[in-house]
Design a protein around this nucleic acid. Structure first.
Ligand code: DTP
Length: 415
DNA sequence: CTCCAACGTAC
RNA sequence: CUUGUACGUUGGAG
């Protein structure tokens, strides 16, 4: 059964879902310039030949296309974009390897895994803090995907994947090379940032780290290369940090990113866009909040070709998505509670761009919301906006977020 | 539960 | 012409 993994990979059903996945992503072409929309035709024409090559273990992937994108924190990310065909083949492998590896992975690993979310990871971290482990060792690996060691990874794969064709194909993908400015270069390490299989390979590569941490009885969560270990004291944190860095460099042959990694109280350190204080309250991390504010300002900048209704719609869909992720944070929960309360008392809501502080003040006073729960007119300028679904829920004062630690609900006039 | 579209976040 | 995995929100077809 496990000997015929490649047969399973090229089965009609797997073939079809892999094709669906690549086409629905609708990503950019690789070095051959073939678009996702052209994949259907290509598979109809060469599908059988490709299937035969895969089964014979004679398929050779193309190099990936090097594209640079800016990272949120500054710096550049080197993407490696495989051709649409190679993304399809990797998708075939991903779909058969995932059910094999999923049950073997640690329960504390959350990144890139089906059925596991950032929320699950943060809630687990919160549980640790509530147990009194309010110091964290935050480990981040330097250029993680780009530095994955081929030999080590292939050894890992040998332990669980018996089908040689699958293993050699993965090996070829790792060594497929990159095209930079039209010139193909060899690569001796790394798995491409942009390969459908890369996230799974990354988890396979870091799997021993999970077992090492669990073996040491440490309380931790891991999301891709971002590993957070929770301990009860600053001294323990320092001790564990040094020891784990050594282990990672020796056993995993990876460098720990010294600038991103460190130890400290959980308050002020960020985990997946959140921060957790000593009492276990989850808040929006400063960096994520800053990004949000930046985006809000851009969204609200008046533009000629953009009408008011259009702006409002754009804003609503952005905030809906944003709030769905940060719904775990206390600030957003507070707004939602306030919204429920406001809904019960007011039928009509109003969307406004510029401040109208007096009107709001009166509205709040009529509603019995006390003064310290809202913002001064000075700090609110230009920053009032509506949160949530088109039906509206509450307004948020971006300017006051950090000062008060909560999102401010605001209510408004009739339409 | 599967699939389609739009959008958001994490890495 | 910005790739990938995963999760989530809204809407739609079964
Ligand atoms: N947009 C993306 N597309 C594809 N892969 C990504 C993307 N973002 C992150 N990854 C993958 C590849 C990264 O090696 C890995 C960890 O991300 P991240 O820690 O942000 O950067 P990095 O480890 O490559 O560099 P560094 O940590 O040194 O800044 O997750």
């Amino acid at each position: 059964m496990i000997e015929q993994l490649m047969e399973e990979a090229v089965s009609p059903e797997n073939w079809h879902t892999a094709w669906k996945a690549v086409v629905s992503n609708d990503g950019a072409p690789g070095i051959d310039g073939m678009r996702c929309s052209e994949l259907v035709e290509h598979l109809q024409r060469h599908g059988e030949a490709i299937r035969a090559k895969l089964l014979a273990g004679r398929y050779t992937p193309s190099p990936v296309l090097r594209t640079k994108i800016p990272k949120p924190g500054g710096g550049e990310r080197d993407l490696g974009i495989p051709t649409v065909m190679d993304r399809f083949v990797q998708q075939l492998l991903l779909q058969v390897l995932t059910p094999i590896y999923e049950p073997r992975f640690s329960a504390r690993s959350y990144g890139f895994r089906p059925g596991r979310s950032t929320h699950d990871a943060v809630r687990q971290a919160q549980a640790y803090v509530k147990e009194g482990k309010s110091y964290v060792i935050d480990l981040d690996i330097e250029k993680f995907f780009d530095r994955v060691n081929h030999n080590l990874l292939m050894h890992r794969l040998r332990e669980t994947v018996s089908d040689v064709r699958v293993r050699t194909l993965i090996g070829r993908y790792l060594k497929a090379g990159v095209m930079v400015n039209g010139v193909v270069q060899d690569n001796e390490e790394g798995t491409p940032q942009g390969g459908p299989l890369s996230p799974l390979l990354a988890n396979i590569y870091l799997d021993p780290l999970d077992w090492e941490l669990e073996g040491r009885g440490l309380a931790y969560v891991r999301y891709a290369d971002d590993c957070n270990i929770y301990v009860g004291s600053a001294a323990a944190a320092q001790r564990v940090l040094a020891s784990i860095i050594g282990w990672i460099e020796k056993k995993l042959r990876l460098k720990v990113n010294q600038t991103k990694s460190g130890t400290g109280p959980t308050t002020g350190r960020r985990l997946l866009g959140f921060s957790i204080n000593a009492r276990g309250v989850i808040a929006i991390a400063q960096k994520s909040m800053a990004r949000f504010q930046e985006k809000v300002r851009a969204l609200w900048r008046p533009q000629r070709h953009r009408g008011n209704e259009e702006m409002r719609e754009e804003w609503n869909q952005y905030v809906r998505g944003w709030c769905s992720h940060f719904a775990l944070a206390e600030e957003v929960r507070w707004v939602k509670r306030a919204d429920g309360w406001i809904r019960r008392h007011i039928r009509k809501y109003y969307w406004q761009r510029w401040h109208c502080a007096q009107g709001r003040l009166h509205a709040f006073q009529r509603l019995g919301i006390s003064r310290h729960h809202w913002v001064s007119a000075r700090s609110s300028r230009g920053a009032w906006c509506m949160a949530g679904s088109p039906a509206l829920q509450a307004a948020i004062s971006v300017a006051s977020l950090r000062r008060y630690g909560y999102l401010m609900p605001s209510v408004l006039l009739a339409r």
